Amino acid sequence: MPRVNVPVTQITRAGVAAPTEVTGDATNNHVVANNGRMVLLVRNSGSTVSRTVTLRLPGLTDGQAVTPRTVSIAQSTSRYIGPFPTGDYSSLLQVDVDNAELKLLAFGV
């Protein structure tokens, strides 16, 4: 099954309404349109354990896969992550989550 899209909310000087969070899908994972200025907001809605979000780097270095970047999100907290240079992360950022307790939002400027 294809990755679940996380829509990017463009921030403007006039302001924008708060978007709806995308619930983490640990089976299909996620993809986000990335222009190099996009930032993720990841919230751990659980109250008992930390959760992990993994950001895939699609390229190769010297013929070897690049180790994905992982970020731990403590219980009942949120983290802003980014921006993501397109040369490293591509124009389609692949985001993996370890549990549905992670909620995702993407913002662009």
Rank of each mutant, 00 (worst) to 15 (best):
V16D: 08
T9C: 13
D25R: 05
T48W: 10
V95G: 01
Q75G: 09
Q10L: 13
D88K: 04
K103G: 05
D62F: 00
T27V: 15
L93D: 11
A65H: 05
P19W: 03
V49G: 01
N34K: 09
A106R: 04
S91I: 05
R56N: 11
N35M: 00
N99P: 02
N99A: 08
E21K: 12
H30L: 14
V49P: 03
R69G: 00
P2T: 04
N28D: 12
V8L: 10
A100K: 06
S72A: 15
G87F: 00
V31Q: 06
T20H: 03
P68I: 13
I81W: 04
L104Y: 01
L41T: 07
P68S: 14
V42M: 09
Q94S: 01
G46H: 08
T48R: 14
G82R: 01
T9Q: 07
T86G: 01
P85A: 02
Y89G: 07
S91R: 11
V31R: 01
P2M: 00
T52W: 04
V53H: 00
L41M: 13
A26I: 08
S76E: 08
V49I: 10
G87Y: 00
R69T: 09
L105Y: 08
S72M: 15
G24F: 10
G63V: 09
S47M: 08
T54L: 02
G36Q: 13
L55T: 00
R37Q: 04
Y80Q: 01
P83Q: 05
N29V: 04
P7N: 08
S76K: 03
S50L: 05
V39S: 10
N5C: 01
R43E: 12
T20K: 02
K103A: 08
Y80C: 06
A106P: 10
D96S: 12
S47E: 11
E101R: 02
V39R: 04
T27C: 05
N34Y: 00
V22K: 11
E21G: 09
D98S: 12
R56H: 05
T9M: 13
P68R: 14
T12G: 12
T86N: 09
D98M: 14
N35K: 06
M38F: 04
G46I: 07
N35T: 14
I73V: 15
P85D: 07
V16C: 11
S76Y: 09
D96R: 12
V6P: 08
V71N: 05
T86W: 02
V16R: 10
R37F: 04
R51C: 03
R79S: 05
L93Y: 04
L102W: 02
T27F: 07
G63R: 13
S72G: 13
A65N: 07
V42E: 02
V66C: 01
T61F: 11
L105I: 00
V22E: 05
I81R: 03
T23D: 05
A26Y: 13
N28G: 00
S50D: 15
G82N: 01
T77W: 06
V16E: 14
A33F: 10
T54C: 02
M38N: 12
D88H: 04
D25T: 07
I73H: 11
I11K: 02
S91F: 00
A17D: 12
E21L: 09
T70L: 15
T48D: 15
G108N: 08
S47W: 04
S90I: 06
T48C: 06
S72C: 09
Q64P: 02
V8A: 06
Q10E: 15
